[in-house]
Simulated assay, not measured.
Amino acid sequence: MLHKKTFLCAGFTVALWAGTTVVAQADVVTSIKPLGFIASAIADGVTKTEVLLPDGASAHDYALKPGDIIKLKNSDLVVWVGPDMEAFMQKPVAQQAGDKNIALSTLAAVKPLLMKGGDDDDHDHEHVQSDAAHHDKQDENSDDDHHHGEYNMHIWLSPEISKLAAVAIHDKLVELMPKNKAKLDANLQQFEAELARTDKQIADELSPVKTKGYFVFHDAYGYFEKQYGLTSLGHFTVNPEIQPGAQRLHNIRTELVEQKAVCVFAEPQFRPAVVEAVARGTGVRIGTLDPLGSGIALGKDSYMQFLTHLSHQYTSCLEGD
């Protein structure tokens, strides 16, 4: 038994060392699951994709574990959004070779597509937010402290940016694994074709509910809303770790009624009682949106499943009866 255990440990140590030098054993590691969906589609049949954040965790406040650090050190490629989203990634990624990580929000092709954070998007949140800011300054300051910088960093909710992410991952893997170029090329081609098909399908599905107003708990969905012309009336909080204050909730409740909102959306990771309290007695339905794809397994079609599932979550609440 001892001999077997010693053999296993030795094998594990060799595997760790090999992972840093032998390309065939290298992994792609992504910070969050939706980036894992994109990476696993491109790396399918070539190399393994792993995700740091487990289901139910939030990029807003995650702390790396020792096992995460080892995973990052032994990875061949790290894919993340950037320091304004995953602050916890900044130090360990800085220790990686520059050509071994992709911070998607910093890519030249992505930068022009970034949306302003907070209220500076296409939807009119001004009334709710300005009232809340006037009456509930302390909560606003808390939100500002935790804001993702100037831009909305939930870029994986943009099919357009996700396509660019797929290209960037493909190009980097071709550099690292030139012998697998044909397979990587085929994977990218399939991803782009499936994304175009899924995008059209979702546009058709969401078209009948485009004019129905709703509130989201967490200000995360701007890219998806812009892509499909949805009518978001506002959000409860910028950072889901911070509960909105009483005055803001009062203003949102008023808006729910005045703007004839159809739905209020919570999230699987954050199901605050305040959502139910605000909606109670208004006739507004409560739905759930999952911006991280909990429960979806990594695979070549997982990003399409993720977008489709999110679309179904919108329609199931907005359509109602």
Results as ranks from 00 to 15, higher is better:
E50V: 11
S105H: 00
D120I: 02
C263A: 09
L176G: 10
A108S: 15
H125A: 15
F236V: 12
Y214N: 09
H135A: 15
C9V: 14
N239T: 08
D290F: 06
H309V: 12
A168K: 04
L64D: 07
A168Q: 10
P92D: 10
Q90P: 01
V110C: 06
A168M: 05
G19W: 03
G320C: 05
A165P: 03
N152A: 13
T13G: 08
L72E: 05
Q138R: 13
Y228M: 06
A165N: 04
W17N: 11
K137H: 11
I202S: 09
D204S: 11
K179V: 14
C263L: 07
H127C: 05
N74A: 10
H218K: 08
T237C: 04
D143M: 12
I155P: 01
E150H: 08
I102D: 07
V78Y: 08
T288A: 04
P92I: 09
F7A: 15
A133R: 15
V81L: 05
K91D: 13
T231Q: 10
I102K: 05
S302N: 08
L188Y: 04
T13F: 11
V238I: 14
V278W: 00
N74R: 14
Q201W: 00
T20C: 04
L114T: 12
D27M: 09
K260Q: 15
D144W: 00
Q313I: 07
L249T: 06
D321Q: 14
D136F: 00
V209Q: 12
V81Y: 03
E175V: 12
L307Y: 03
A266G: 09
P178G: 07
A196M: 07
S142H: 11
N141A: 08
K48A: 12
I202F: 03
N74L: 13
K181R: 13
M115I: 13
G287I: 04
E126H: 13
G283N: 07
K200Q: 15
D143F: 01
R248F: 02
H125K: 12
V29I: 15
R285E: 03
M304Q: 15
P112E: 10
D76Y: 08
L318Y: 06
L157I: 09
D290G: 09
M85K: 09
A182Q: 14
Q25P: 02
L230M: 14
Q25K: 01
L233R: 12
D136G: 13
K116V: 10
S130L: 12
A15P: 00
V28R: 06
F191E: 10
V238W: 01
Q259C: 02
T21E: 05
K91F: 01
L307H: 06
L72D: 04
D143I: 03
F7V: 15
G287F: 03
V14Q: 01
T282F: 01
H60L: 11
L53V: 05
Q247I: 02
K172C: 01
K100W: 02
